[in-house]
Design a protein around this nucleic acid. Structure first.
Lengths: 322, 322
DNA sequence: GTGAAAGCGCTAACAG
DNA sequence: CTGTTAGCGCTTTCAC
């Protein structure tokens, strides 16, 4: 391993000078700079990130905490976030929490002890008090942590209402909602949207709860339809759940979209692979990822933010399930 | 931030003693140990991983390099690997390479400069020479890097032949192979398996090439069937490609499994969500992940390995596409 | 403009 | 058994 000392020796300057050109700050004569640069080239030197972090008490990495790496929405989001951050010389550390408190606690310890510079978090369990111990900039995606933590979400409430209105416009009059888990921010918002729009349209409200996964959604749908055969439209809590709904419908021999229309939420690629292809409210994942990286880097650099909450609109994408 | 010095002061011992109890090595009297432990509790102290790494030139983290986080096979593998490694007090750093040389080069730099203790790699581009610079233990999954790098794979060749034999046993006599990308280890192996088994069965060979993604597979299938309407069975390069095949078939109005039987490879959950559900050769992902973690940790601890190559059997899972 | 030197928090001789 | 001390590789005052 070649160190800054080796470079200094080869360039016949002090380590301080090498450090200056490395960090591009302070005065360095053109001549010295050139010698140092040549030495760096020749020795194929890369600064040691660990030593740097130790001194600065801050590393060039940021933590990205997601609840479930198996939900393809998060890998997509990760790609977007990582792309932006890598371009800005940061490494992103992915942590899968399953939104369990003990995992989260470990992750927080890791981040603190690794001098992570900032964090992007998707979680319903992480509260302000967890963050306090970290004392690094944080932004929340897809969920809101608190007033004081900047967050980026889609307009779950409004876009859910739009989904319902679209179903109504397609002739549905008995619209059920297979909702996401209680206590999960966006699941609650989407549920509120459903409820309020259904009320405004003076339609019957039919809600059943699942998790953000395929299996519970499938089971819930079976149960729901057993009790309410009159249903002619379903708004699923997210795309994965919508896939579960469509599977249940297939098992029951119910034709989509003729006898039943189904709409999801998120816009993951998966939705285009099932038959029929899923109509959904598509989130601007790329945009959210990029913006969150940008926001976080601003925070890290000590810039103050103009706004604390950014919201995006999910876009109706009509495919074959409606 | 509380340091080892604070603990030493609180416990009225030297930092060396604190370090000894922290690392549980060397002689420490029961009395001192107790004092130190109490102080650690009271001050809520966690050792600084960065400082430790700097001194030891080795961190408690291992790098996991995958080609495509969007292929759900890899998140599943990640979960398995991470589970094992977390239980053994390691952090796993996930790197998405898209198997591009420039990304890989950056990742290698990161790993070196972060003192990563070892790496688990899935890549066709990474060769021994890249690894030489790293000089840390490495194991390969799903691909073989070189004779000298321990690897864990399924019996792609043998299991591919089994897939073909199964299709034959179901009455197929014109079996095509929508193969994975050229130069990708497991795609080549699966292709060889197809070719040899088809030859042995004295059936016509029909191969078309795609990438390990949905879209190219769909297009390739369309093309293939346009030229060879006599095909009655398709072996896809992996499950994602099989999903593409089934989509193409749906577009063409070809009934699965009546007019055409389809089998995939990998066993990702996705395969159970499409209609019809996908028959596939299922890899023991959990097992491979665990074993690779175990192997790597042994290597890191300096144990010599008895064998350098581990292979697993994929298992035929019959569902509705055959 | 440049270098010497003090540390970031930790571990591992080494001496007692 | 325990404490002192010298670094790990880097950045940053502070003199010159």
């Amino acid at each position: 391993m070649t160190t800054i000392r080796d470079v200094a020796k080869a360039a016949q300057v002090s380590v301080a000078t090498v450090s200056r050109v490395l960090n591009n700050q302070g005065y360095v004569s053109a001549h010295s700079r050139e010698k140092v640069e040549r030495a760096i080239q020749e020795l194929n030197y890369t600064p040691n990130a660990v030593a740097r972090s130790l001194y600065k008490k801050k590393s060039k990495s940021i933590g990205f905490i997601i609840p479930d790496i198996s939900n393809p929405f998060f890998p997509q989001l990760f790609r977007a976030v990582e792309k932006y951050l890598i371009d800005h010389e940061y490494t992103v550390l992915l942590f899968n929490s399953d939104d369990q408190l003990d995992r989260i606690s470990n992750i927080m310890d890791s981040m603190r002890t690794e001098y992570v510079a900032g964090a992007i978090i998707v979680s319903d369990k992480i509260k302000e008090e967890h963050l306090a111990k970290l004392s690094i900039p944080v932004v929340a995606i897809d969920r809101v942590i608190s007033e004081h933590v900047p967050s980026l979400t889609v307009n779950n409430y409004k876009n859910a209402r739009e989904a319902i209105r679209y179903l109504v416009s397609q002739g549905c009059s008995n619209i059920a909602h297979v909702r996401g888990p209680k206590g999960v921010y966006n699941a609650e918002e989407r549920f509120r949207g459903y409820r309020d729009e259904i009320a405004e349209q003076q339609l019957p409200s039919l809600v059943i709860c699942g998790n953000y996964d395929l299996k519970t959604s499938l089971v819930a749908t079976m149960e729901l339809l057993d009790q309410h055969p009159e249903i002619d439209g379903i708004f699923a809590g997210n795309d994965i759940m919508a896939v579960g709904v469509i599977k249940a419908l297939a098992k029951l021999g119910i034709q989509v979209p003729d006898q039943m229309k189904v709409i999801g939420f998120d816009g993951i690629e998966w939705g285009t692979t099932i038959t029929p292809e899923l109509t959904t409210m598509e989130q601007p994942i790329e945009q959210i990822g990029t913006k969150s990286g940008e926001l976080l880097l601003n925070l890290i650099d000590g810039h103050v933010m103009d706004s604390h909450h950014y919201s995006f609109d999910a876009k109706l994408v009509v495919r074959d399930s409606t």
